[in-house]
Design a protein around this nucleic acid. Sequence first.
DNA 1: TTGAAAGCGCTAACAT
DNA 2: ATGTTAGCGCTTTCAA
Lengths: 341, 341
Amino acid sequence: MGSAIADVAARAGVSKATASRALSGKGYVATATRQRVVDAAKEIGFVASPNAASLVTGRTKNIGVVIPFISHWFFGAILEGIEEALLGRGYDMTLYNLRPGSVDRDRVFDFFLARKRFDGVIAIGVEPTAEEAGRLLRLGIPMISIGAPVAGIRSLTIDDVRAARLATEHLLGLGHRNIMHIGGVITGDDDQTVNGQRLTGYRQAMVAAGLGGEMRAAQAVMSVPGGYDAGTHALSDPTLRPTAVFAACDEVAIGVMIAARRIGIRVPDDLSVIGIDGHDYAEMFSLTTIEQKPRLQGQSAVTDLLEAVSGEPAAVEVVEMPARLVVRASTAPARIRADAV
Amino acid sequence: MGSAIADVAARAGVSKATASRALSGKGYVATATRQRVVDAAKEIGFVASPNAASLVTGRTKNIGVVIPFISHWFFGAILEGIEEALLGRGYDMTLYNLRPGSVDRDRVFDFFLARKRFDGVIAIGVEPTAEEAGRLLRLGIPMISIGAPVAGIRSLTIDDVRAARLATEHLLGLGHRNIMHIGGVITGDDDQTVNGQRLTGYRQAMVAAGLGGEMRAAQAVMSVPGGYDAGTHALSDPTLRPTAVFAACDEVAIGVMIAARRIGIRVPDDLSVIGIDGHDYAEMFSLTTIEQKPRLQGQSAVTDLLEAVSGEPAAVEVVEMPARLVVRASTAPARIRADAV
DNA sequence: TTGAAAGCGCTAACAT
DNA sequence: ATGTTAGCGCTTTCAA
């Protein structure tokens, strides 16, 4: 029941302080004494109250995580990586699911996160404002960002511009000229979010190839059905149909491939598709992709954050995660069409 | 910074007790006094320490959630439902990702959950043992289970046997005789898990239709690639091919449909497929399914659990969630094949 | 309506 | 190597 460390101490015939030392392993305790305390604790089923401990140590062994989606593969996989890394070190994870544009955003940053409940915070794809970040840092709560470079705090991300360029160049290298980009929703023309950067990379590659006039971009909800809808729309007119699609993420790419097949377009023979993420399903769909390894990103974020928690604040910088091109059958060399000769 | 309620009190010219009453809204405080306290708190950016409050009230406003997968749609959607419901009531969610067979299981139940960190625990698809459940209940931590009936605690679940029977009967009603079940991994013959119950429902329906001798069941990893692999295997031999497949979940069903199309089997004309879950992608794939509404399950779990937290412990019982058959094009009436005439 | 005082369960000096 | 003491920041009697 409500057994406290005082009960353990009494049972072992020592003081609370000694019981605390024996149980936590900090400070000198005679081996025999320690054993008696440990036994006593086990006998009455004692488990220390983390609240009480936190109150005095100032450490909670708890990390706050903010994420926009859970039921999207990429984000779910990051979460799994974080959880695994945290659990192994005796930390737990408190999760805030903050969809883009959520009215709860202020409450999460101002109330939930700004209490002394967390040793650190991981923001995934959320792009905290300078004010939001500053508030936490001033409270002494280190923060790290995954997937979105945030001014003033350490960020883990792939170089999205470069990844998009890589993907587009891969299609160009196969001989494609008519390459369409199906990306996420963009706000404004100088959008610096992940979606904006991927569009930028596409543009850079197209312009560099002298195809600045051939660029075509559409926006899709970042999901398989989103890609399906956008793909259906983009591919329906045979005369305007691209020969290759660079999708801003694998879920969209998969949706596009499904739409193409339903329309009767052979993939990859008549349409090359490339995505970004390295989705678990990519192999099944023979999808060519730029691999991001989200689980690894989650684990790295934990490593970096806990370093900042226990030691010096980690340097503020953008850490580039590896992004690897994985070629599969979904991208084939462009074929010379009869009508193009 | 480390502003405490004493700072607020000093600034407002009242005692800590009054400041506490003013901020929490409990107890008598003159309106003018309250306003001064609230202003003072805002001015110095005071946010109460939940640890300190928990220590004295015994309530943490924090719920522990145990889940086997995050990056599977069904589980992710439940989590989103839970988070939404919790956030609205000022509660946090601490998440433990416990894959089946994980070596961390004991640590999570004995160490992480059994501390006074949680007002309640939600176990999703985890089936705590009587001992694990009893331990928490003895500590006064109410627990609720989603998706798996657990002895001694309240459970939210669809009637999996009935859902499976419903699915199978739907295929039977379309005239199918050669119906295969592609389910999850089963351990032993009287497996009482979700997978086992769905197999049982399939058997009941088949036997009731006089097709006990025609039953065929395969096991698959519960994912789209898992369904793809199992489907590829099950459908490769044209002479043994079923005319309909009842898949134990939508992800498997989708995998089976993709495999079928790749093999050249027309869906739904030559193969009817039905799943369970009500996946977001079901509509896109025209998948007939038994809908489970996981977000709703998550929300209901929160409602029920918080009732138990604040009032009488809720009655121990199994609450049946609605499961609804959604018919789409992926199940078509069985056709009389030439070779069957 | 407000204040003083006690104490939630633990850890960390400081003594011994 | 162990015990004593003093809080961590808050809420809650109890008195005024």
